[in-house]
């Protein structure tokens, strides 16, 4: 197949349209704006609809309305925008609406800056909105995966009637790489529950309210069963040189690319090092971490944050072996040399 050199952000839109998405609601923000721009350019060409919403809140609620109608639809933003969308995300989870939400993370907190960061892990993976809910969160590390995981996200969202998230960073969004685009999805899943424009089922309703505690608890139990099925079926990770490793580094998104270089360089010097890259941040590959912990000496986690995913690594490891952490904040991306120095330093300690 022919490859196309393309920005990660643009690959998301092409992947989404190939997956059958025809509705995009968004608000401009760096470093995610190319997603809105590509959606505005391509959606009218394929008979779709792009709306530049008046706010992030409007965008997620337009998406809520569109998803209620049974179509594949999406939004995208970057960190401060995701904070604003959290209300709508919680409603979508409560009302069981499938949709795809993309967060191209930037430096924070507050207005921060537009450089790449990974400090939205807690916000997006742990449920930044109110109430208890879960979403499959996928973390691409290449332009190819920006396309592929977006397509997968639509499938997962539809399968479970639940929002699904692409959690990327500024570099993966802005970077251009060759992408082989898959064939389009020709037929979309039927949604018997959706609000249609004709022959309304008399009881068709999209809602997250239930005043009766026992009834709302039943709804929550149903959601938890759904999350358990998602957890059982959608763990994704990639191992690199872990077979004989004594030290395994863990990172997602652009960090995993840098760690790939770290592993190559240290392997060249005879260090038994490997890389484990979570692709699904929820469900987190905890069982795989438990397996690794039984045969290696230490984990070394790198994030573009104060250390958020590392908590999940530590929960899985449960104190069995050391879990070391190195993070840079505010949009600073560490070099392979810098990480190698930290790995060596912590080995001596």
């Amino acid at each position: 197949m022919a490859k196309q050199l393309i920005k990660g952000n643009e690959a998301i839109v092409k992947g989404a349209i190939l997956a059958g998405c025809r509705f995009y609601f968004g608000y401009p923000i760096t470093p995610a704006s190319e997603i809105a721009e590509a959606a505005a350019f391509y959606l009218p060409v394929v008979g779709g609809t792009f709306i530049q919403a008046e706010s992030e809140s409007a965008a997620i609620n337009m998406l809520y309305g569109a998803a209620s109608g049974g179509v594949r639809a999406m939004t995208a933003s970057s960190s401060p925008g995701m904070s604003l969308k959290q209300e709508g995300i919680s409603y979508a989870a409560g009302s069981e609406l499938p949709m795809v939400i993309v967060d191209v993370m930037r430096g924070g907190p507050g207005l921060g800056n537009i450089a790449p960061a990974q400090a939205d892990y807690n916000q997006m993976v742990k449920g930044g909105g109110h109430g208890g809910y879960k979403m499959v969160v996928l973390a691409p590390n290449s332009a190819q995966e920006m396309c592929d995981l977006t397509m997968l996200a639509f499938d997962v969202a539809d399968k479970y009637r639940n929002p699904a998230v692409i959690l990327a960073d500024g570099f993966v969004g802005q970077m251009m790489e060759p992408v082989e685009f898959p064939e389009p999805v020709m037929e979309l899943p039927k949604k018997e529950w959706a609000i249609q424009a004709d022959a309304q089922d008399e009881f068709r309703l999209v809602s997250s309210i239930d005043l009766e505690p026992e009834e709302l608890e039943k709804h929550n139990v149903h959601l938890q069963q759904k999350y358990a099925a998602m957890e059982a079926n959608h763990v994704m990770f990639e191992d690199y040189q872990t077979e004989d490793a004594e030290l395994v580094v863990i990172g997602y998104g652009v960090v995993s690319r840098i760690l790939h270089s770290v592993v190559d360089e240290l392997r060249g010097k005879g260090v038994k090092i490997g890389l484990m890259r979570p692709i699904s941040l929820w469900p987190f590959p905890k069982n795989h971490i438990i397996e690794l912990a039984a045969r290696i000496k230490r984990f070394f986690v790198v994030e573009l944050s104060d250390g958020q995913m590392v908590d999940d690594v530590r929960l899985a490891v449960n104190g069995k072996i050391p879990v070391q952490f190195y993070g840079r904040y505010g949009g600073v991306v560490p070099s392979p040399d810098e990480i190698i120095a930290q790995i060596m330093k912590k080995n001596e300690a």
């Binding site: 309305g65 209620s68 709508g88």
Partner: peptide, 19 residues
């Protein structure tokens, strides 16, 4: 019927009407 978040009904209406 679609139940919307507080104040968001015009945005939700926009989404379903466009669909």
């Amino acid at each position: 019927n679609i139940q919307a978040a507080h104040g968001r009904a015009p945005a939700v209406s926009t989404g379903i009407k466009r669909v």
